[in-house]
Simulated scan of single mutants.
Amino acid sequence: MDDTELDKKLKSVGKAAFVTNYELFQNFTAGRISRADAIEALVTKKVSNEAGAAIRNGNAKLIFESGRELDALDLVLQSNRVNDDIRDLARKLRR
């Protein structure tokens, strides 16, 4: 996955959603939780509806499968469109 595709996938997931649900996406990619459970978790947290949650999970999984999750966190850190809480969480996850 090149940088352009990474940026596109991250925007599809949502930068804030990627950071706040990082462990969920990580567990889904590793097979520790099912697709249905990952979708339900996002719907329950009111991140998105079922269709949106499926798209977010799928794109986040592609980021993790290609080993670009830390690069995605770097993109979040460079973004001017996320609040300080999201940026701080991204920094913690990046360590």
Rank of each mutant, 00 (worst) to 15 (best):
D84H: 07
N80V: 02
I55Q: 08
N57G: 06
E65G: 04
E50K: 11
L10N: 09
T44I: 07
V43A: 05
D37S: 10
T4H: 12
Q26T: 01
N49A: 05
N27D: 12
S79C: 11
R87Q: 11
K45W: 03
K9N: 15
V76F: 11
I33L: 09
D88C: 01
K45D: 10
R87S: 12
K46T: 04
N21I: 00
R81N: 15
E40H: 06
G52I: 00
L89S: 03
T4C: 09
K46L: 04
E40G: 05
K15T: 00
A41E: 11
K45T: 04
V43D: 03
Y22D: 08
K46P: 00
L89H: 05
D74L: 11
A30E: 12
F64N: 07
G52S: 05
A16P: 03
S79Q: 10
L70Q: 14
N59I: 00
A53F: 05
R56C: 07
L75C: 08
L6D: 13
A17R: 12
I39M: 08
D37W: 03
N27A: 04
N59S: 12
T4R: 14
L42N: 01
L89M: 05
L89F: 01
N21H: 14
N27S: 08
D3R: 12
A51Y: 05
E5I: 15
D88T: 07
E5T: 15
E23Q: 13
R32A: 04
F28M: 06
G67Q: 13
S79F: 08
S34K: 08
I39N: 06
L89E: 09
R81Y: 14
S79H: 10
K61T: 01
E5D: 15
F64L: 11
K61W: 07
A53D: 06
K46S: 06
A54S: 08
D88G: 00
D37C: 01
A72T: 06
A41H: 07
R87V: 09
L73M: 09
E23N: 09
N49T: 04
S79E: 07
E40Q: 10
I86Y: 00
A17G: 05
L77M: 15
L6K: 10
D2F: 12
L73A: 07
S79D: 13
N27C: 02
I86A: 00
L89G: 00
E65W: 05
N59M: 14
N57A: 15
T29E: 13
D2A: 10
D85E: 11
S34M: 07
A72Y: 09
K8S: 15
V19L: 02
G58E: 10
A51W: 02
G14T: 11
D84E: 14
A36C: 01
N57Q: 07
L24T: 07
